[in-house]
Each structure stands twice: as structure tokens, then as C-alpha cells.
Design a protein around this nucleic acid. Structure first.
Lengths: 164, 164
DNA sequence: AAATTAGGTCAATAAGATTGACTTATATGA
DNA sequence: TCATATAAGTCAATCTTATTGACCTAATTT
């Protein structure tokens, strides 16, 4: 058994500890706002797709609407997000970040990016690209990720469609 | 902004979806035994360090003893682990996998390894090594990981020490 | 007018974790 | 030997995140 295979035995530990480290700083930062991991994810996806609807968001996150409802309301109460009824169909609730929300999301993203950047810089070579490639392969099989990708492309060209 | 930096904006999504994919199959497999993620992690660490004590295990996992107590008892009741009082100090409870436990742990590890192996093979080059390097950097800052490494080295040479 | 859809809400349940307090058994040091 | 410390177990209350199921309103579509 070679060195690389040896380390495959420790996949679980790498993922477990790696994910804990990756989320540790943002978790501490958001604590003072009384929010948690799930709220960060929500902020993240609304930042990527402003105007995303509730149904789209829960499809992306792969959770139920009951699971989404409470944190979403908390984020609204705390002034991080706001919603507008859909322009063409008022049943849809379109979600946007407030300025406050944009700032928080950026702050959290920045910490995670800098943490990873430090590691990529230290290791050098093609470590960043290789790591991203592998994680994208894992992510690519998720229905939520597929849905997100489609949404991302659609919504990016939506302005044009709407103004036709 | 170049391609690589672009992808750094999506770190959270890569980790979130990646971790979900990574744990999806084992989660399905252990469901039929009525156990969950935390039980898999416990099995994993006992497999790596047979004879680990309760206190050592909760230090590695970075959880409280109350959080460990219940799943540990379940695993004992279901016949996946057993314990022996410490040879030199009977207060210590040393944890071991039963044959059943060994088999389950192996089965779960195998699924995760094969999933990753498929990706590494597809991507080729030094993707595996690079990915492991990055995850090790993230893991290395965890107190639980440090403690685990020390334990791993100590317990591996313990037989010699005990037979002095 | 009826059916469908988007979203909200209530209730019950569950896993996984926390803090705090207390008990038992064992070991150790003054 | 007695006091203290340590390893582990347990009880209780609480919390977050999630689930399934049922039911409601409002808006839209057929």
C-alpha cells in the first residue's frame, strides 16, 4: 500500500476536520447576529442569484420549505434580506439581500476565501485548480447544484428576456 | 478576475455540496442499522485507534461526553463495539470494534474511497495528492486532529511500551 | 368555477449537540 | 489513611436543524 492509498484511508477525517475548519470562522462571526450555518448558506445563494424565489432556494439547498421558512424569516427580521412579489406572478416571492446583507455575505466569503488562499499559496503549483476540480466533480452529482447552475445562467440573461 | 479567483467565490457551494455527496452513500447504508453520521465517525476512529478511551475519543471528535455517551451505547447495544477496562487503570474504558463493527467500518470506508478514487482517476495527474494536501492543511489546525495524530503514534508503539 | 401553484404555518418527531449538576468507581499523593 | 483528582455515566433542560404530514391563503391557469 503506497502513500497515496494510505491517505485514502483517512478520507473521512480529512473531510470532517476540513469542513469544521472551513466553517469555524464564519460560524463565530455570525454568532453575534444570532444566526447560524444555514443562514450563511441562504445569504450565499441569494447573493449569487438575486431575486431567487423561495421554491427555487429550497430546491437548491435540498431542504423542505418548513426547514427554510424559519431562518428566512429571521434573516428578514434582522434586516439582511428583503422580498418583492414577482412582477408577472404575485405568488412568487423574490428574495434580495439588503445592503446590510450584502456586506455580511461579503465579509463571510472573504474570510473563507482568504483562509483557502493562504493554503493554496503555501502549497503552490496547481493545488488550487486541482482541489477545485475535485470538489466540482463531487458537487456535480447534486440535484441542487445542477438546479443552481441552470438558475444562474437563466437569471443572468433574464434582464434581456424581460425587456424583450 | 481570472478563472481561479472566480471559483473561489463558490468555495461554500463546493464544500457544502461536496460534503453532502461524500456522506450521502454511507448515510444511506447505515440507515438500515438505525445509526447516523456520528456513529460512522465513532466507528472510524475506533478502527484507527483500537483501545482508544472514551475521553480520548471525545477529544478527537471535539464533542462533549454527553454527546458521545448515547451513540456509543447504541453502537455497543447493536454489537458493533465492545469495551474492556484498562489493564493498568480500571477507570479507563478501552473501545474496540467487534468483527461486525470491523466489517461495517470497512464497508463504509470502501464506498467513500471508491467514490473519490473514481474522481481522482477521471481527473488524473496529481489531483489526488493535491486534494489530500489541501485537506490536510485545513485539518492540521484542528485540536482534535492534532490529538489524533499523537494518539495514533503513541498507540502504535504501545505494545512495545507495555511489554517492557 | 375548478384545479393548480407558491408560499406560510402548525404540530409532532428526530438527531445531534450544548451546559450544568451530580454519582460511581478507581487511583494517587500528602 | 484520608482527601483529592480523574474517568466515566447519567439526568435534566435547552437548542438548532431538520424531517413528514396536514391544512390554509392568495394568485393564477385551465
Amino acid at each position: 500500500m503506497n502513500h497515496e492509498e494510505d491517505e485514502l484511508n483517512e478520507l473521512l477525517i480529512l473531510f470532517y476536520f476540513g469542513y469544521r475548519t472551513f466553517t469555524e470562522k464564519p460560524n463565530q462571526m455570525i454568532q453575534k447576529y444570532g444566526i447560524q450555518r444555514v443562514h450563511h448558506r441562504i445569504l450565499f445563494f441569494i447573493a449569487r442569484i438575486p431575486g431567487i424565489t423561495v421554491n427555487e432556494l429550497l430546491t437548491v439547498l435540498e431542504v423542505t420549505k418548513q426547514a427554510l421558512n424559519h431562518p428566512l424569516r429571521q434573516l428578514t427580521e434582522k434586516g439582511f434580506i428583503l422580498h418583492k412579489p414577482g412582477e408577472f406572478d404575485k405568488r412568487y416571492k423574490q428574495l434580495y439581500l439588503t445592503d446590510r446583507g450584502v456586506n455580511l455575505e461579503r465579509e463571510l466569503s472573504k474570510v473563507q476565501q482568504e483562509q483557502m488562499k493562504t493554503i493554496f499559496t503555501k502549497l503552490g503549483g496547481n493545488h488550487q485548480e486541482a482541489w477545485v476540480d475535485v470538489m466540482k466533480e463531487l458537487s456535480s452529482v447534486r440535484p441542487g447544484q445542477k438546479f443552481f447552475k441552470d438558475l444562474f445562467l437563466t437569471k443572468n440573461s433574464e434582464t434581456n428576456i424581460n425587456n424583450k
